[in-house]
Computed example of a mutant assay.
Amino acid sequence: MTTWPTAELHVHVEGTLEADLLVELARRNDVRLPSYDPEVLTARYAFADLQSFLDVYYSNLSVLRTEQDFYDLASAYLRRAEQAGVRRAEIFFDPQTHLGNGVPFEAVIRGLDAAIADATRGSGLSADLILCFQRDLGADAAMQTLETALPFRDSFIGVGLDSAEVGYPPSLFTEVYARAAAEGLHRVAHAGEEGGPEYVREALDMLKVERVDHGNRALEDPALVQRLRDERIPLTVCPLSNVALRTAPSDLAQHPLTAMLAEGLLVSVNSDDPAYFGGYVDDNYRAMESALSLDASQLAMLARNSFESTFATDAAKAAWIAEVDAVLAKVSG
């Protein structure tokens, strides 16, 4: 199968912590794990819902302690992303978890930033960071985190909203998003994964987001679908994640991506937390190609959509989209 040039717009760097690196960092930092056998650890990655995943996910993050740890984590992801055809990565990170573990913000951002600088130097890869707030920790904690991060403003391009969705609507975070906008930061938010279409509306109307992460349940509201189509609001869909967390049918052939494409939505394919959900972005492309019988023109559309949805320059977008068109011409010719 063809590896398409693509942007990855919905990936949590902490969710790329593969079991072998998890064990290496645990030993490095003298952190106790349930097992030091990577196969035993990954056998735990069968989740009933989002919360059961988050419990394992946040527990594993206790191994990240130093700037070098964050450098190693991001470097491993960026190497794998380049193999997957990623030309542009806009990478989420969750500083509140690490701050809660006693790790200084500077260690987190410096490690991630250095990894990006090294991986993109002289390569065809472009990458930036998006700071995410954990919605279950509340709006006050989000504002405090933003204040902590602003001295490092040049090291991230935007803010996002993630973690447990239901019960924590976007409207709770209006003030911190307004502050982020005033600082010139891009705004995205997870919405419509577990929460209904009203969460997507709130993210658009109250947080003024430029991109919706997931957004699957927007399909339940025809008026919202029309708005998303008319305003070309990007949706960053994560198929293998949806199946793993049971926010979509277990049969990938019934995934709503087909309906999103049919509605003319600006939808892209992403990996979310690939170390836990069985695949990186190229694996997601191939899974959807197989399950939905997508043809080359549809796959090219997803790749074009991903680049259109980035926060990169228009010139960079045009160059990447031209690369997609060249691949399409080659596989169709």
Rank of each mutant, 00 (worst) to 15 (best):
T2D: 05
W4D: 00
T6I: 15
V11W: 04
T16C: 14
E18Y: 13
V23Q: 09
E24L: 10
R28W: 02
N29T: 11
N29E: 13
V31E: 15
V31D: 13
Y36W: 06
P38S: 09
V40M: 14
A43Q: 06
Y45W: 15
F47Q: 03
L54G: 11
Y58F: 15
N60Q: 12
L64A: 03
R65T: 08
T66F: 10
E67P: 02
Y71A: 12
D72Q: 15
D72N: 10
L73K: 07
L73W: 04
A74G: 00
Y77G: 02
Y77T: 03
R79A: 12
A81Q: 12
V86D: 04
R87D: 03
R87I: 04
F93M: 05
F93W: 14
Q96D: 11
G100P: 00
G100R: 02
V103P: 07
P104M: 05
F105V: 11
A107W: 05
G111Y: 05
D118V: 12
T120F: 01
R121N: 12
G122C: 09
G122R: 09
S126Q: 13
S126M: 03
A127S: 03
I130G: 00
L131C: 15
C132E: 05
F133D: 00
Q134P: 00
G138L: 09
A142D: 06
T145P: 07
T145A: 14
E147D: 13
T148I: 10
T148N: 06
A149T: 10
F152V: 10
R153G: 08
D154I: 02
F156M: 03
Y168E: 05
S171E: 13
E175Y: 05
V176P: 02
Y177S: 08
Y177D: 09
A191R: 01
G192T: 14
E194H: 03
P197V: 01
P197Q: 02
E202N: 00
E202G: 00
K208D: 14
V209C: 01
E210W: 00
V212S: 06
G215E: 05
R227T: 10
L228W: 02
E231I: 10
P234A: 12
L235T: 12
S241Y: 07
T247K: 09
D251P: 07
D251N: 15
Q254M: 06
H255I: 12
L257K: 14
M260H: 02
L266I: 01
D273F: 13
F277C: 03
G279E: 13
Y280Q: 09
D282S: 14
Y285P: 07
M288R: 02
D295S: 00
Q298G: 11
L302H: 08
R304V: 12
F307A: 04
S309E: 04
A312P: 05
A312T: 14
A312D: 14
D314L: 13
A315C: 04
K317T: 13
A318M: 11
A319V: 11
I321P: 04
V324N: 06
V327S: 02
V327Q: 07
K330F: 04
S332L: 14
S332I: 08
